[in-house]
């Protein structure tokens, strides 16, 4: 049997590097981050929609409906933004 030395420490730094890279990439690219956060927030919102509609929709439908609501609100905020700083568009 041959002993395989796992390069422990380098791997750890590699993971840290990867995380740091993803993190820095996220800090640079705001959009995916916001999308991700939005989807996470939707996980909280969906049960509320599910409860409010009283079983009229399935869980999946409630999730997508909540997502649609969020998209609508995001669009509204975006349009408000355009309205006040139209020079940027």
């Amino acid at each position: 049997m041959k002993l395989i030395h796992l390069p422990h420490i380098p791997k750890q730094t590699q993971i840290i590097e990867t995380v740091a890279e993803i993190w820095s990439e996220w800090r640079r690219q705001k959009l995916p981050l916001y999308l991700f956060l939005g989807l996470c927030f939707n996980l909280v919102l969906a049960p509320a929609v599910f409860a409010a509609t009283g079983g009229e929709f399935s869980r999946t439908q409630a999730y997508w409906l909540a997502a649609l609501g969020l998209v609508t609100i995001a669009l509204a905020i975006y349009l408000f933004f355009v309205m006040f700083v139209p020079e940027k568009f």
Binding site: A76, M83, P86, E87
Partner: peptide
């Protein structure tokens, strides 16, 4: 620019109406 404002307001109004 002024026209862009008007168009985005109209779009927002219709977004609210349809939603």
């Amino acid at each position: 620019i002024a026209l862009t404002v008007l168009l985005s307001v109209l779009t927002l109004v219709f977004l609210i109406v349809v939603a």
